[in-house]
Design a binder for these strands. Sequence first.
DNA 1: TCCCCGCCTGATGTGCACAACGATTTGTCA
DNA 2: TGACAAATCGTTGTGCACATCAGGCGGGGA
Lengths: 225, 225
Amino acid sequence: MADADSGLTVKDRHAAVYAELRQRICLLDYPPRAQLSEIALAGEFGTSRTPMRRVLARLEEEGLVQSVHGVGTFVTDADITELEQAYRLRVELTGLTGQLDPVTPDTVFLMELQRLITRAAQMIVSGTPRSFTELDMDVFQALLHLTANEPLRRVLERLYYQTKRLWLVKAIKAELDLQEEYGIFLHELQAIRIALESGDLMAVAQIQRAHISMSFNRLRKQSAI
Amino acid sequence: MADADSGLTVKDRHAAVYAELRQRICLLDYPPRAQLSEIALAGEFGTSRTPMRRVLARLEEEGLVQSVHGVGTFVTDADITELEQAYRLRVELTGLTGQLDPVTPDTVFLMELQRLITRAAQMIVSGTPRSFTELDMDVFQALLHLTANEPLRRVLERLYYQTKRLWLVKAIKAELDLQEEYGIFLHELQAIRIALESGDLMAVAQIQRAHISMSFNRLRKQSAI
DNA sequence: TCCCCGCCTGATGTGCACAACGATTTGTCA
DNA sequence: TGACAAATCGTTGTGCACATCAGGCGGGGA
């Protein structure tokens, strides 16, 4: 793994490793029930078990892995019944982003959003479940800047990465209409842009909230088959 | 420190140490800016630095302590301007407890609540800021059972312990009318009991939400002097 | 042939010694 | 006497060796 950690403090390195592992888990590079070796990861990131264990402990706090003494560290399986509570909480908290410390975006933000919309449009013609998830993560991170409430942002980020695997698992199993998913997502982004240009952050939050809720319903409908 | 850890698994021991340190910080046994020694704590709890560092790392995640390489681990100071966002989020999330997976209490719960109300009544005649905070923690833990949404409970617990020190700091500095605080708290508990007996969990949540909001306003008014 | 007991392997958890780092103190020079 | 620099001390961060534990494998006895 090439790091190029020029001038970064040690804590930032830990955060980078954490984010990298979280990404791999949520993109199913490490699928559910996969085993993570502390020694192997330590070797890959050029460190020892001690700092790696700290990162894994945090991932365990977030519910993405589970360590068992004498057995191993395993990626948790994304079970929709267990994550339903987290998903519903995420729906409500997303609605709060319009109330708690909303941030009116600048032109840089709007340009970035336009780029994301362009990527979403290309997704319809040549999109894979994985590339779509990567785009969704970038959109999430961008829209997170619309609230300045730091505790809310942290909780939302946590819930996002806890629940996001559900979609990708179902998509890979071809239990979702991908074209429909892509189209709905593009439509959501365009609606958000319109709301943003009118400065209505409350509307932006409600649009996101509605789409997260509907996305969960689509996931649930498929898993009921 | 007497532990009496008969039959407990190792992870439970870690959780117990974490809860104990969190309690000490929030009761100001470790006041803001106090230094925590990894070696001293390890000796007190009969373990070594390695597991203790894991506990301290979690406390750092929760924002209760801060570790600086080569300097030490210090209790963060409870600053009302920094915690305002957390407090407002806590207000909104408390309101959600009536919507997300509410749990209708059984008679055991109501009896426990009655005991807490009795303690609150005694508090008015012979209460200290510290004993009041201990009661408040017990009440919080009890009322947390009114929602079965586990992610919501975890977030609420986190926000509670992040923000609770604010009250105790102001109370010790005699910047709060303690008799008024005790009376309001007793009144809140009685209102909650009435709402519970009528089975209106939404009302219970709104009562709590209102009192947390008002409590924060009283804290802010005093700190503005 | 089947079952049970014990060993063996590989993993996480722990303890300890050392490295890295920052604040303070002390010594030296102008 | 004052100011700057180097050393010293205490603390957190890291690496490694060992302890602990769970599961699998194999051998022996009924």
